[in-house]
Design a protein around this nucleic acid. Structure first.
Lengths: 250, 250
DNA sequence: GAGTGGTCTAGACCACCTG
DNA sequence: AGGTGGTCTAGACCACTCT
């Protein structure tokens, strides 16, 4: 973000880098969020303040911000200011929880953590999370239930170092979405996921958790989640005997 | 799009409607596309021309166009012009074909139309397509194969009137995506779909088409597709024994 | 070289929220 | 009333494409 002091007809700042100014500004804003200078939920300086601080025109700032709004990183409120998006339970559910009942009704589940452990990553897990050979993973086994009835069995694999401060309690029912804990406790914001849905047949653990028989067909969802910086931060597998997976394409 | 001739400090055109000018422009552009004034693949007038024609500034035109680009309705090419997006087979496949092989490899299938017929819509079909009681539907039964091996069995329900000019040949292998025919022959552009993925067990027709046994578990995808004007234009069900469904959320 | 979209600036005014 | 984001305008210059 450097000004060129050479006199020019319109006296523009100049792009020393090849990339457009507004993209550089955009990335600078993202960097400040990742670095924790602006935390989730807090307000950015006003457009005017950023203009003078960064020495660019307001249109350029706005264009950078619009990009981030459309990416879901910022949220603007007319008359009030611009906030870094903080994941709320309701919003995460709407955005990332794609299971619905067979008739299309939305789900409102509580999560129950069955077991957690830290161990070396398997080859598969290293590949999915792009981990080095020596890195350890935190493994969460949990169910999601509604009205006491278990509907989803889930195995969540996380890079242990990144999630050292996660500190979930085994055994308790939690209605808060886990992505909220990722953000609040570990500074990890999930921005994007890749989901793959297929058939599977229930093994003993799945059958017991979902109350079906071993070998019964179940829906299997394999998810890789990406953080603000684009790195892979979660590898999750979900199994369900009765729910459907719903999504929109555009 | 009306100019207010009252003298004002900055001599702006004025919004007689409550909605912002750029939104009115955006909707006007969409209307012209729907009305066939600008057809898929053709070029719009340049930004400058639209400015003078519509009596607004270039920034307003640009903002309207940017909206439509992000919706996938327009496509801009630097130095060349702005086009109405025409569905190509490759692009439709990338955008709307979500099946992949079990190992994640993308699919490159040919479609084979088994049977087509026109009949009254069932209650279920009327509900999914929001049709009136008397309306008829065009039913397509087809498979998608790769290397001669059938991988997907598909039942496509279309409002008969809207797709009167579709004119598909039964029995031939077609590698072109059907959405291209929708657009070219029937003027229907698919903009958005809602997909629901669940478990099913193969009935006789599915089992025969896919070469599996009746009662075997299969992946079941139920899709509703929406046109440019937001109306429901296609209700499709797909079954597959071996493929997975892959999608991204952000 | 002429024409197109892409970037960037500058400034006015409007609509909304908060004190 | 003062500050914030939202809309709209006007104009310069840049980068790309075609002929």
């Amino acid at each position: 973000m450097t000004l060129d002091q050479t006199p020019r007809v319109t006296d523009h700042p100049v792009r020393l880098e090849a990339r457009p100014l507004y993209q550089q500004i955009r990335d600078l804003l993202v960097k400040r969020i990742i670095d924790g200078i602006w935390r989730p939920g807090s307000y950015l300086p006003s457009e005017q303040q950023l203009c003078t601080e960064l020495g660019v025109s307001i249109g350029t700032i706005r264009k950078a911000m619009e990009d981030l709004v459309s990416q879901g990183i910022l949220e603007r409120q007319h008359g009030r200011g611009t906030q870094v998006v903080a994941h709320s339970s309701a919003q995460s559910r709407f955005r990332f929880l794609r299971f619905v009942h067979a008739d299309g009704r939305p789900l409102d589940p509580v999560a129950h953590l069955l077991r957690q452990s830290v161990r070396n990553a398997t080859l598969e897990e290293r590949r999915q999370l792009e981990l080095d050979a020596h890195e350890k993973v935190l493994v969460l086994l949990r169910t999601r239930s509604e009205a006491g009835e278990p509907l989803v069995y889930e195995k969540v694999i996380l890079p242990a170092e990144m999630f050292a401060r996660l500190d979930l309690k085994t055994g308790a029912d939690i209605s808060e979405e886990i992505y909220v804990f990722y953000q609040k406790r570990c500074g990890v914001t999930i921005m994007r996921t890749q989901d793959q849905i297929g058939l599977d047949s229930a093994d003993a653990a799945i059958a017991e958790a979902l109350g079906t028989k071993t070998g019964e067909p179940v829906l299997h969802v394999r998810r890789i989640s990406f953080g603000l910086d684009g790195r892979r931060v979660e590898y999750r597998q979900s199994w369900s005997a009765r729910l459907k997976y719903q999504t929109e394409l555009d």
